[in-house]
């Protein structure tokens, strides 16, 4: 809106949210970055200033790289880091395998069904995430619903250990993030022209082949958006592994919060945050490009 934009109010409209985001989104990262180079000390706040001021002049800058070297030498951090990537990747793959057929089926159903099914996909999202993860404790624990049913059916004679396993974390993440995979996939698949498949069939392609050669390549942007929406937050996931996951192998988000809350080591927690961000910066930028393409393609 060029002419409206020229109005003096334009500056104001842009400036208010802009300043807010710079203040509460951008600057906090700079602070995290700064503190990751600080020395821990027993005080409040529990870190030493980087820059020493005396009589209005800088008399010294102290950068402590030991927070980072600590992370690289202690095996706990490296294994938590790699474990988080593995968990996020495996969960993303499962989300895709479960979510794709669901999104496909919804996109191909009649208009009335479409609305109902979409509502069913979105509905759990509106109920508490925490409580939905909690529901799995009741299902997975040794005297939980799944074990009780299997014992009753005689499939097993001893309760299975399902809680505090990798499996439980995968289930929790897939369960919580599934709508985030389905919705972008659906948004993409829904736009496909069904005559493309008819054309492929007309040219002699069997349904599976038509799917692999036509539908799948066309749905790549949806797949990418869905996978990034699951993978990026899953890497730093904290609640799900805390409730369902192993106690002998932590995820990196848990390590961060333990350093922060239990050890009160803010500089090391900041350094962990910076390393997570370093891992995620490329996926996040990729997500922004996908999102931009999605939002700025005018009908």
């Amino acid at each position: 809106m060029q002419a409206l934009g020229k109005h003096a109010g334009r500056r104001f409209v842009v400036a208010v949210p802009y300043l807010w985001l710079i203040m509460l989104f951008l600057i906090p990262f700079i602070i995290v970055f700064k503190i990751s180079f600080s020395e821990t000390r027993m005080a409040m706040p529990p870190y030493a200033p980087l820059i020493e001021w005396r009589d209005g002049a800088i008399v010294g800058i102290k950068l402590y790289f030991s927070n980072y070297s600590f992370l690289f030498t202690d095996r706990l951090y490296a294994s938590a880091y790699l474990y988080s990537i593995k968990v996020a990747a495996v969960s993303t793959l499962w989300c895709l395998l479960i979510g794709y057929p669901m999104a496909y089926a919804i996109a191909r159903s009649t208009a009335a069904w479409k609305n109902l099914l979409l509502m069913l996909i979105i509905l759990p999202f509106w109920t508490s995430f925490l409580l939905r993860v909690y529901a799995w404790i009741g299902l997975l624990k040794s005297n939980g619903v799944i074990n009780n049913v299997l014992l009753w059916l005689g499939v097993i004679h001893e309760p299975l250990t399902l809680m505090q396993t990798d499996f439980a974390v995968y289930v929790g993440i897939v369960y919580s993030y599934l709508p985030f995979m389905i919705l972008p996939l659906y948004a993409n698949l829904e736009k496909h022209d069904t005559t493309l498949l008819e054309a492929a069939a007309d040219l002699g392609a069997r349904p599976w082949r038509a799917f692999l050669r036509v539908t799948l390549p066309l749905s790549m942007p949806g797949i990418l958006a869905g996978c990034l929406l699951v993978f990026i937050p899953a890497v730093g996931e904290y609640v799900i592994p805390s409730l369902l996951g192993r106690t002998d192998q932590l995820m990196i988000g848990r390590v961060l919060s333990d350093e922060f809350f239990a050890n009160r080591d803010w500089p090391v927690a900041s350094a962990v945050a910076i390393l997570i961000l370093g891992l995620l910066v490329v996926p996040i930028m990729l997500f922004q490009r996908v999102q931009k393409g999605e939002l700025e393609a005018r009908p």
Partner: peptide, 20 residues
């Protein structure tokens, strides 16, 4: 700055805001 918070892991958002 608008799209990043959609995927930013919560522990990072929480930590950075507290430090702010």
């Amino acid at each position: 700055m608008t799209t990043a918070p959609l995927v930013m892991p919560e522990v990072i958002t929480g930590l950075s805001l507290l430090l702010l």
